[in-house]
Design a protein around this nucleic acid. Structure first.
Lengths: 202, 202
DNA sequence: AATTGAATTAAACAAATGATTAATAAAAAA
DNA sequence: TTTTTTATTAATCATTTGTTTAATTCAATT
């Protein structure tokens, strides 16, 4: 299904993604992409037609990768709800430490151009995931408070992702360098699951 | 202290802010600003020297307004910790419904250009606020779990702000229009304080 | 009324930008 | 080898962009 990319195409895509993440779509020029990937400027259009087309491809693949990884944990048949929450935190905090610019980039570009989102991989599977089902089972059993599943799912992501998006502010507030900041985020791997459980338990 | 702006300057600033919020700094052109504010293009540079200078002024004022409003609640001597949390949610959710593009815009521009942040109003006062002190008193008394105050403060903001930043995704997931989305956010005025209290209480 | 300084305008400039062209080099097919 | 297709290049094009200039209008002051 997935298109096979040539070496040159991969070089372009890698450089473009790195620049888009750092500076955003509009502030990134095709000449910068060409320079960073060490290819001739014309090759960008030769392979990807336009800057915008290139961006769309990168955006789609990025979102697709992320959603796939998330749904993988959410739909695991073997794990309990609490395990799923824990695994989500661990996986996603690690992912974001590895690529800390990604969440802000994605949400900002979606804000700037919601149509770039039309081709987006289906997000609906999240609400149909095993994680949500397990939560609702817990509500039925009277173990958990009844809250709309959308809030439950949103809260988990909020506690995980938002602190990364605030990193410039947090770093300044607490005079942290990147390493110290990451340590703070890693602490949250253990705390967030506890907090979430407390939030939902009666 | 604050500079008095002429009618024309206000028109420019208002239009510029609206466009910056919608499209970001780079994607906004000076000609668009001139058109939207119905002034001659040259007046932008006449009053504000450059697009970047204009942006810096808008950014500073925006952050300053936000921080002032926040610290106002955080340092209220009359309210309890739980009341402060409740008031924060109410105030900030209302603010964000009124200007939903603001958080993503600010965090994205800070990411793209952390130096635009050097002149930023002091964020340190948050950690020295009455809110944080009250939380720490509660920890000493054994009422609350001991967690770094930075996590406590971050969690509140995460649960309030992040869902707004995800609005394109949430709207798509649940097929919501803006009104329905806002209703969902307003629900959180009551829920978030409850969740936060549960998180910190022993 | 005349003068001065601020506000506004249309026009222009220089640099940057996304995209294309036409020529060449490299690789694959015949 | 020859031919044909694919990949790469340097140069160029047409717009767009931030900014400036020089002229003009407007408002206040003398």
């Amino acid at each position: 299904m997935k298109k096979e990319y040539s070496e040159t195409e991969i070089k372009i895509k890698t450089a473009a993604k790195s620049l888009f993440l750092k500076k955003g779509y509009s502030a990134t020029t095709t000449r910068e992409i060409a320079k960073e990937s060490d290819i001739n400027l014309a090759l960008l259009n030769y392979y990807f037609t336009s800057k915008w087309k290139l961006f769309e491809i990168i955006m789609f693949e990025t979102l697709f990768d992320f959603l796939s990884k998330m749904v993988e944990v959410y739909n695991d048949e073997k794990t309990s709800l609490e395990e799923k929450i824990k695994l989500t935190c661990e996986k996603y905090i690690d992912m974001t430490i590895a690529e800390p610019l990604l969440p802000t980039f994605v949400l900002n570009e979606l804000k700037n151009n919601p149509t770039s989102f039309l081709k987006m991989p289906s997000t609906k599977m999240i609400m149909k995931s095993r994680l949500v089902a397990q939560y609702q089972e817990g509500v039925k059993k009277g173990i958990y408070n009844k809250v709309e599943p959308i809030h439950f799912v949103t809260n988990i992501m909020s506690l995980i992702v938002f602190p990364f998006m605030c990193s410039p502010i947090l770093k300044k507030m607490e005079k942290l360098n990147t390493k110290e900041f990451n340590t703070l985020m890693l602490e949250r791997k253990k705390s967030i699951p506890k907090w979430i459980i407390k939030m939902i338990k009666k």
